[in-house]
């Protein structure tokens, strides 16, 4: 009798060990960042210290902007609620350290995707949510209407720790113009110094110029010059080494863009479940197993579209309707003459 008991217990133990092993591999498939996020109940998102249209907090502390919406989309996908995001405002200088040190899990802060950033410092860029380029702002009264009118001795205000500083040097060197860079740590001080007349021109990404212009004491006195001196693809960034989390953030962004392409909006998403088009049905979780690979349920993408909206809605709400950049320019779908083109969800 005892013999059997012994055998039985060892069998139970073995099964238990095996079971433990299998659940362990299942969990390991899910990402560590995803697990931590679900345990905490909120997505930790790094944003700017206030850039209208991209990430900006109102008086009540509510964050809005296209960069903010990327984090909200991820929260809707993994936690079921787009409001479960903890935003951490970061300066240009702090942003990458905050991400690599694990203080935040997504950096969605008008950050330019470059080779050295992607390859060198432990980061992975997951996509582009805004195609931008560096430009110059000058006072209208100066009569300058093009960068070709810049002369030796011009002073340019900008932020430190950005690609802007490097592009500015390339630009002025290639034109053979001597210049004085005045680089501040925070954007608010750049604006204040330029506004006071410390610099002849203010240079940063054009979207940033358009947004900061609204903060000037008299926005109408300033114009953004037509020239674009660099490519600035801005997009969300994650830490290197968590492939599943990387995929979740990438496809949350892709879902928003693809939803616009297929005309799925926050208003009509539910009714699209019965659509004839299988691609549309996949985007609202009515066909296929699109969430399984991430360790998510099947309606993760439906929640993004319902709670945050598609890319076009986000752009209109944050950038167009606020008067920052009413014209979408390159940030239009490829089907409508822009360059927004994402791989298909299937």
């Amino acid at each position: 009798m005892f013999k059997y008991v012994k055998q039985l217990t060892s069998l139970v133990a073995m099964v238990a060990v095996l079971f433990a092993f299998t659940t362990e591999t299942m969990a390991a498939k899910k990402s560590k960042t995803l697990k931590n996020t679900q345990k905490k109940g909120f997505v930790r998102c790094g944003v700017s210290q206030g850039l209208p249209g991209f990430s900006n907090a109102d008086a009540a502390g509510n964050w809005t902007g296209v960069d903010v919406d990327v984090c909200r989309a991820v929260a809707a996908a993994v936690l079921g609620d787009a409001n479960k995001v903890k935003f951490t405002p970061l300066s240009a200088k702090e942003r990458f350290t905050a991400l690599t040190s694990g203080e935040i899990d997504i950096l969605s802060r008008n950050t330019t995707w470059t080779l050295s950033r992607d390859a060198d410092i432990g980061l992975t860029f997951v996509g582009v949510n805004f195609y931008d380029g560096q430009g110059f702002m000058v006072r209208k009264s100066s009569g300058i209407t093009s960068t070709s009118q810049f002369k030796n001795g011009i002073s340019a205000c900008t932020n430190i720790g950005t690609t802007t500083e490097l592009n500015m040097r390339d630009f002025f060197n290639s034109k053979g113009i001597s210049y004085t860079p005045v680089a501040f740590e925070k954007a608010d001080e750049v604006v204040a110094a330029y506004d006071a007349g410390r610099c002849d021109t203010y240079t940063t990404d054009k979207s940033g110029l358009a947004a900061q212009r609204t903060k000037m004491s008299n926005p109408d006195e300033h114009i953004v010059l037509p020239e674009t001196i660099s490519k600035e693809p801005l997009g969300p960034v994650v830490r290197q080494g968590d492939a599943v989390w990387e995929d979740i953030v990438r496809w949350s962004l892709n879902t928003m863009i693809e939803a616009e392409e297929y005309g799925i909006t926050s208003a009509n998403a539910d009714s699209m479940k019965t659509s004839e088009n299988p691609q549309v049905k996949r985007l609202v979780g009515a066909e296929g197993e699109m969430g399984a690979a991430f360790g998510l349920d099947n309606e993760w993408n439906l929640r993004i579209i319902k709670q945050v909206g598609n890319y076009g809605e986000s752009y209109k709400r944050n950038i167009a309707d606020t008067g920052i950049l009413p014209d979408r320019g390159p940030n239009q779908l490829w089907t409508k003459g822009g360059i927004l083109y994402v791989p298909p969800s299937r």
Partner: peptide, 24 residues
């Protein structure tokens, strides 16, 4: 100094250089 754009050690080296190289 970093707050008002005077290029001291912190602004130039622990600021711009750190950002460009990522060698925190």
């Amino acid at each position: 100094a970093a707050a008002i754009a005077y290029p001291d050690l912190v602004l130039v080296f622990a600021g711009t250089a750190m950002m460009q190289t990522g060698r925190a």
